[in-house]
Design a protein around this nucleic acid. Structure first.
Lengths: 198, 198
DNA sequence: TTTCCATATGAACAAGCGTTCAGTTAAATG
DNA sequence: CATTTAACTGAACGCTTGTTCATATGGAAA
C-alpha cells in the first residue's frame, strides 16, 4: 500500500495548528519577547518540550506565522485579479485590503509589530514580500498618473500614505462595533479616491 | 544658607537623563520586553542596581517615557494655538503633526508600539492623552463640516484615518533621505486637504 | 580636616528563560 | 497479539531576569 499522507491516530495534524493559533493569539496580545514557550504550550495543553515537534525554535515559529500571513496576502491579491482603469483597480485594491485585513486582526498586528524581533535573514525575507505588496499599489498609482486621472506628487510616498491609512483601521475597528464592514469600506474608498484624483 | 536645588557635584541630574535616553533608544530598537535593566545600565555606564535611584521599577520607566512624550505633544499642540477657518486649522494641525513627530522617531515608535506592555492603569492614563489629541483633530473636522467646507462621512473614522496616514510617515522616513521635511509636509497636506474637502 | 550623604557598586535572591533528551504512552501496523 | 513509532512528559541544563541591599566612594558642607 502506498504511503499515507498521515496516520489516522496521529495528533500532529491537530496539535500543529493549535500551536500556531495559540502562538499567534498570545504574541498579538503580549508581544513575542513577552510570551514564553511554556505559556504557548500551556495554552495548547501540552508541555513546553513537545512544542519542538512542531518548530525548531521560537524564532522560526514567529517567522512562519509572519511568512504565512504575507504569503496568504500576496496570493489573495493575485486572486483578486484587478483589471480595468487605474481608478477601478485602485478601488479594487482598497476594497481588497480592507476585506482581507479586517477579519485577521491578530495576523496583521503581529506582522506589523514584530518585525524587529525577526533575525536579520528572516526580516529581509518578510521585507521582500511587504515590498511586493506595496509595489502592487504603486503600479496602480503610476498607471493612473499616465492616464491623467490621478494627480500625485510622489507615487512612493503616496503609496505608503494610503497603506498606512488603510492598515490603521486595525487600530480602532472591533468586530461587532458601531460600523459595518461595507460602511467602513465606502468611507475609506471615498477618502482614497479624493486624495489621489486630479 | 537656603537649601540648594541640587548639589553641584551630584551626578543625578546627569545620569537621570542618560538613563531615559538609553532606555528610549534601546526600547525603540528592541522592544520593552526584550530590553533588560542590565542592558540599559550598561548603555549608561553604571550597574543595574543604580538604575533604581532613577525609577522605582522597569514598568514605571516605560510609563514615564510615554507620558513625557504625550505631555510634550499636547503642550506643543496647545502652543501651536491653531486659529482661523477650519481649513486653516486643519493645515496647521497637519504641519504641526509632521513637524513634531519627524524629529522624534524613537519617542513616536515607543509610544505607539509599547502600549500593550503598560499596566492596566498606566495604559488608561496614556489612552486619555491620546484621545485628547485625536479629539483636537476631530473638532477641526466638525467645524469644517459646519462651515460647509468639508464633506466627511464620519468625523471619528476620518480622524483616525488621517492620524494613521500622518503617523505612518515614521514607517519610511529617515533623516537625510531623499525628501526634505518641507516637501513631505506639502505632499501630505495636499492629500489631507483633498480627502476631506467638498 | 572632618563629617555627611547622594550616588554607585557588586553580590545575592528567587523565578523564569529557551532548549535538550532519556524515558513513557498509546495507537496503528504486521 | 506483538511490534513499532509518533507524540508527549518531566526533569534537567546553563543562563538571564527584575529587584534588593549592605557596603564603598568621593565631593560638598561645616
Amino acid at each position: 500500500m502506498a504511503v499515507m499522507a498521515r496516520k489516522q491516530g496521529s495528533h500532529s495534524d491537530i496539535t500543529g495548528p493549535k500551536v500556531r493559533d495559540a502562538a499567534l493569539r498570545l504574541i498579538a496580545r503580549h508581544g513575542y519577547a513577552a510570551v514564553s514557550m511554556r505559556q504557548i504550550a500551556a495554552e495548547v495543553g501540552i508541555q513546553a518540550g513537545a512544542l519542538y515537534n512542531y518548530t525548531p525554535d521560537k524564532q522560526t515559529l514567529l517567522f512562519d506565522l509572519m511568512k504565512g500571513h504575507m504569503t496568504d496576502l500576496l496570493c489573495a491579491l493575485d486572486d483578486a485579479d484587478l483589471k480595468g482603469t487605474a481608478l477601478a483597480r485602485l478601488e479594487g485594491f482598497t476594497r481588497f485590503h480592507i476585506q482581507f485585513h479586517l477579519p485577521k486582526p491578530d495576523q496583521v498586528f503581529v506582522s506589523y509589530m514584530e518585525l524587529r524581533n525577526l533575525s536579520e535573514e528572516n526580516f529581509a525575507a518578510i521585507e521582500v514580500m511587504r515590498r511586493q505588496y506595496e509595489d502592487a499599489l504603486e503600479s496602480i498609482l503610476r498607471a493612473g498618473e499616465a492616464e491623467g486621472v490621478f494627480a500625485i506628487a510622489d507615487t512612493r510616498v503616496t503609496t505608503m500614505a494610503l497603506i498606512a491609512m488603510l492598515t490603521g483601521i486595525g487600530n480602532w475597528y472591533r468586530a461587532g462595533g458601531r460600523l459595518k464592514t461595507d460602511t467602513i469600506t465606502a468611507i475609506y474608498w471615498d477618502m482614497v479616491r479624493r486624495s489621489v484624483t486630479a
